[in-house]
Amino acid sequence: MENKLQEIAKKLLTDGEVDLVIGYGADTDRFIEPVFITKPDEAKKLLWNKKCFNNLAVYLTKDVVKHANKVGIIAKGCDIKAIVGLIQESQIDRDKVVILGISCDGVGEPLLKKCNGCDVNTPKLYDHLIGDPIESTLREDKYAEVEDFERRSGEDKKAFWDKELAKCIKCYACRAACPLCYCAKCVVEKNIPQWVPTSPHSAGNFSWNFIRSFHLTGRCVGCGECERVCPVGIPLGLINKKAALEVKSAFEYEAGYDYEVEPPLTCF
């Protein structure tokens, strides 16, 4: 698969079809770091394996991409859901990205939580498919953890979030890693007046984490990046999945599958 990946990336760059390829390169003990390839010869740096965690779609709204004419991006099915969201929300043109979609049977050892509930092992949208199509076998219902949590008493839920959110240090890594948190000025940065308290105390942390989730309701694609990067280990996915489940039951809509469908809560 790696060979095919490098081959296609090299060809895209050689033919001038794209002037940048965003992919996975440099192997480390933690994961494969993102790389930005601009020369055909460097395409051989591209890697694919079970340590390719990052959702590279986060870079599609950054300057490095805005300055490029056309970009190639290596993306797993779950990452492509975020690309779908960005197209829907007019953040990128479908014509401006060449998607090298990966047939993926899961990352992480043991598998990341999201991979157990994956229904996009073969991506739903791509320009080139790397690897043979894989049929999704849902090992787990992705909303199961929300349903389990819902069974707890109100008091119990409150105690759980009090404890978890007390850990938040307001580093905003969750926002930085989220492909759909692309606002040039986040609501917490609007300080005339200051709408959301920026202090990492209880009121500030509840405001931040729930406002972020509200803003992603119907938009979060469940790529799990926010939870992966949170340095203190807050189960952020649980908040986002709860919101996604509400949208699913109210509008029969789940984010990230089809960019031609109008999202129920965000029409631009």
Partner: peptide, 25 residues
């Protein structure tokens, strides 16, 4: 800096980083 995502994680966990903001609530 190309891949850096502009968060505060590295500074907030760092034992020597000491920058702070002053705000009124």
């Amino acid at each position: 800096a190309l891949k850096c995502l502009s968060c505060g994680a590295c500074a907030y966990v760092c034992p020597t980083c000491h920058c702070f903001d002053v705000i009124d609530e």
